[in-house]
């Protein structure tokens, strides 16, 4: 909690410098763009946490994809070593083994060392990354008491959760 506050303060002080630079720039461009003054004003109020949001969202996406693709890669190598010589058949649709279709089943399969389970775990993480990004943005908007975007992100988040839960029941 303390760490969070500290980060927020640091980013805010950076922010003050950032927004003053933005204003300087927009003053420069007055005349070129009719709305520059408006830009200066909105930047003063909205960019106070905009860069916090950008930074958190960017790192979450970056590390989410990195982790997921590493797991898929490891699982893929194991899969090719173990099953590489088996015939490939994707022409005909068959139901997946049900354990690879549910989150709990995938985790058990991955923990038991099943290469396909490990790949599917990576794919799960990959799909979860944008969902977590929405959840994180919601928390940031909530923390900033941004009612409008808090509601917007909460709505998207509940749709995503509904799609995952609704698919299994």
């Amino acid at each position: 909690m303390n760490f969070f506050n500290l980060r927020a303060k640091v980013s805010w002080s950076e922010e003050v410098r950032d927004s003053s630079r933005v204003i300087e720039q927009s003053v420069d461009t007055v005349g070129k763009f009719s709305n520059s003054q408006i830009a200066g004003k909105t930047n003063l109020t909205s960019s106070s946490y905009e860069s916090t949001l950008k930074r958190f969202v960017s790192s979450l996406l970056k590390y989410g994809v990195l982790l997921a693709s590493t797991i898929v890669f490891v699982g893929g190598i194991l899969y090719l070593i173990i099953c590489g010589t088996e015939p490939a058949n994707y022409q005909f649709f068959r139901e997946e083994p049900s354990e690879l279709c549910s989150p709990v089943g995938v985790i058990t399969a991955a923990l038991s060392g099943n290469p396909l389970g490990i790949i599917q775990l990576g794919l799960f993480l990959l799909i979860a990354t944008p969902v977590l990004r929405v959840a994180l943005s919601f928390l940031i908007f909530l923390w900033q008491r941004d009612l409008l975007y808090g509601i917007v992100t909460l709505f998207v988040l509940s749709e995503l959760i509904y799609s995952f839960i609704g698919a299994y029941f």
């Binding site: 099953c83 994707y90 944008p130 839960i165 299994y168």
Partner: peptide, 30 residues
């Protein structure tokens, strides 16, 4: 990303997301 994640839940549950096929596709496209 978020748009695709919204339908991924349905596709996962129905067995459309096959690990053996998705693995080379994802590791190639990326």
């Amino acid at each position: 990303g978020v748009t695709a994640a919204a339908s991924a839940g349905v596709y996962l549950a129905r067995g459309y997301i096959d690990p053996g096929l998705s693995m080379p596709v994802m590791l190639g496209v990326l």
